[in-house]
Amino acid sequence: MENYKAINWNNLEDQIDKATWEKLTEQFWLDTRIPLSNDLADWREFGENDRDVVAKVFGGLTLLDTLQSQDGVAALKPDIRTQQEEAVFNNIEFMESVHAKSYSSIFSTLNTPKEIEEIFAWTDSNEILQYKAKKINEIYHTGSPLQKKVASVFLETFLFYSGFYTPLYWLGHNKLANVAEIIKLILRDESVHGTYIGYKFQLGFNELSEEQQEEFKAWMYELLYDLYENEEKYTHLLYDQVGWTDDVLVFLRYNANKALMNLGMDPLFPDTAEDVNPVVMNGISTSTSNHDFFSQVGNGYLLGNVEAMQDSDYEF
Rank of each mutant, 00 (worst) to 15 (best):
Y4L: 05
N8V: 00
A19N: 11
E22W: 04
L24N: 05
T32H: 14
I34Q: 00
S37F: 13
N38V: 02
N38M: 08
F46H: 08
G47P: 06
Q70R: 10
A74L: 15
A75Y: 03
P78Q: 00
D79E: 09
E85K: 14
E86H: 08
V88L: 02
F94C: 11
A100H: 10
F107L: 01
L110M: 01
E115T: 10
I116C: 14
T123H: 05
S125F: 08
N126C: 15
E127W: 03
I136L: 09
Y140G: 06
V150Y: 11
L155S: 07
L159C: 14
F160D: 10
G163L: 07
F164L: 13
Y165T: 06
W170M: 00
H173R: 04
H173V: 02
K175E: 13
K175Y: 09
L187Y: 13
R188H: 08
V192G: 01
Y196G: 00
I197E: 03
Y199H: 08
L203C: 07
H236V: 09
Y239P: 12
D247A: 07
R253G: 03
L263C: 03
M265A: 13
D266F: 12
D275E: 00
D275W: 11
N277F: 03
T286M: 06
F294Y: 14
F294L: 09
G298M: 05
N299V: 07
G304N: 02
N305L: 06
Q310A: 15
S312M: 13
